[in-house]
Design a protein around this nucleic acid. Sequence first.
DNA 1: ACTGGTAATGGTAACGCTATCATAGGCATA
DNA 2: TATGCCTATGATAGCGTTACCATTACCAGT
Lengths: 394, 394
Amino acid sequence: MAGGVESAGARRGGQWRAARSAVNRDSASLASGERVISRKSAAARADTGATPEGPTRGRRPTINDIARLANVSKKTVSRVINDSPFVREETREKISAIITELGFAPDPQARGLAFRRSFLIGMIYDNPTPQYVVNMQQGILDAMKGTSFELVIRPCNRQDPNFLLDMRAFVERQKLFGVVLPPSVSEDERLIDVLDEIGCPYIRIASVALDEPASMVVTHDHIGGLEAARHLTRLGHSRIAHISGPSLFRSAHERRRGFVAGLAEAGLKLPKELDREAAYTFETGAENAAVLLALKPRPTAIFCGNDEMAAGVYKAARDAGLSIPGDISVIGFDDSAMASRLYPLLTSVKLPIHDMGQMAAAKLIATTREKRTHTNEKTEVVPTLVVRESTAAA
Amino acid sequence: MAGGVESAGARRGGQWRAARSAVNRDSASLASGERVISRKSAAARADTGATPEGPTRGRRPTINDIARLANVSKKTVSRVINDSPFVREETREKISAIITELGFAPDPQARGLAFRRSFLIGMIYDNPTPQYVVNMQQGILDAMKGTSFELVIRPCNRQDPNFLLDMRAFVERQKLFGVVLPPSVSEDERLIDVLDEIGCPYIRIASVALDEPASMVVTHDHIGGLEAARHLTRLGHSRIAHISGPSLFRSAHERRRGFVAGLAEAGLKLPKELDREAAYTFETGAENAAVLLALKPRPTAIFCGNDEMAAGVYKAARDAGLSIPGDISVIGFDDSAMASRLYPLLTSVKLPIHDMGQMAAAKLIATTREKRTHTNEKTEVVPTLVVRESTAAA
DNA sequence: ACTGGTAATGGTAACGCTATCATAGGCATA
DNA sequence: TATGCCTATGATAGCGTTACCATTACCAGT
């Protein structure tokens, strides 16, 4: 099974203040009590046990200590901790003061056990872009700041035959408070079914409203496509190509849809030979760009479904001896770090990834915490075009 | 305080199988029992309560169920879960079979509560490079695969006045099983002191052995610098510059040290005017490169402490009308994604970030799980040079 | 004053696991 | 046979919190 803990717990002497010095008979009698990982264990141990009866001696204070000092039952302390409205203001203040004084914080595990639900928020994702992932993690963490939640991450592979089983085990065992689902896991209805079945709350981040507003952060990728098209048509381009991501990604579809709409505003169409589907990768971007650049007449601009593919276009352009933006304008999507490291700097569509993560986590938390739940409000986000050097007049 | 939970728990009807249908009098009588986040709540609730006495009906099985079915005490089941050697093989197999059959998995919170330690491994980091962070997260997660541990992440800012307090609260409250510390938090002795004081195990990932082998993964960055120097001197360069990271980063110091040693092998020195300290950023890389490229005689090669600064060199070279590698060879460090997107492709020193994370987590877990603790063995890793297009003969 | 309702609080039993200590059996030694 | 020691197992008491169901205090309405 999972374990290996029983034998270990006893082996190391002074780990985690409450640890016993006793020798667990069950433990494998291996290397004796020496401290393996960190130094100064002796010192750490020193202020630990010794006076097991003294109420507030060494150990972290518990709800019982607070209750005793405040002359109330621990249930009342619990009420204060959990913001129950049924506590007299005076009582609440007295208890709060003691909590602050002792630096008490409830044990998340005991709380979770009694609450039948942990204080862990999961982020399940299969997005391969490090910057995207890190930004969103940071957003989620920012929303959790000051709360007692923690973030547990779970990259995954939707192709894996065990995907659903793994996710179910993860969410169910940890009794996750909720999960944040960025694209493209957010689009996986099988996963949603699993989460619904076990009753775990979730927020889906996606480019279209796949669910009720309460559980969505909608990113309106199509507006990014629209803006890209407008920018290019305003620059006088009329023969404009698109390299999209895989069509089974909603984002790819939405970006393309907005782009087509933007062209239509200028009376333009996206002819078949200028409309190519790739895989959101550098290599496929380069390959498809090579084809486009060999066309006669050549397109004068290319809008790419992401920056990776735009970098591929740069390569193809170099290989074809074409200059950006002189011969060909390029727009990416994501505004990744790369966009401002490539030469020339890449014009790109930017999504506020950090904020998306923050909003998602905030919704998850708000569902439960706020007096007046804002939860049914729509949460939407709009991409913006960041113009740099890779686009110029036709 | 932290909370806001008491009022919420009762509000949503069928969340998390075990949830009661009762109305908690303490709960704020807000929006009644409607399901806010996920759909199908009614269905989920259906198979929940109903038969509260039936032993294995709807609820997840507990250790008691296993014990009853196996006709042993729950302590013995616990022994099996935790790989205690003091269980007869026959008994173990009987219990394991039932565990497998029922798909039982121990509740991490209950386990943690009793064990006085959670099954969460923390990663505390202040590394700003998304790719680094994500790779290391993945490595840690890979090491945890198949265990019952989960990863909790914690980006931080060492300049923040609350840094140490926050970290202490985090580690102490969550009773973390252990933490992984990549550079540069791994170099922070104040943090180490805090961790030692509360007795939380840790693994430090750093370019030099800052601690006993048991708690280190050493990356030997200096060898990367050495290889870079050798590569350039072999190509016939003799006027070679270095742009290093901030000297208070051990990595920056080590990379430079190895580089100097490599030059020395060829009888070369790093003269003061070719030895520049920057901040690991694109901008400072560009600025310092501009200065170097204006020198007469100009250096014919530049080794940068990371890829970001190398990208800055690219910019400076373009601005100065110099070609890479024709006029100037460039080497980076990190082998980031950017290295193979820049033009020309950047020669760079690569560290196996993923493996470093994996090794660190494995050490943390092994300390406790393995029969024979490998923990005192040194864990070391060596960077390799990835030669691409940005370096050529002098 | 009596009733009834709501606000505020408390007692006790969970929650699901491990620690601790006790005990039963087996086997070698005296 | 008695003794001791080791192996395998169990009984019970926590771990620190919240759920559940009282119970008390208070106040308005009759």
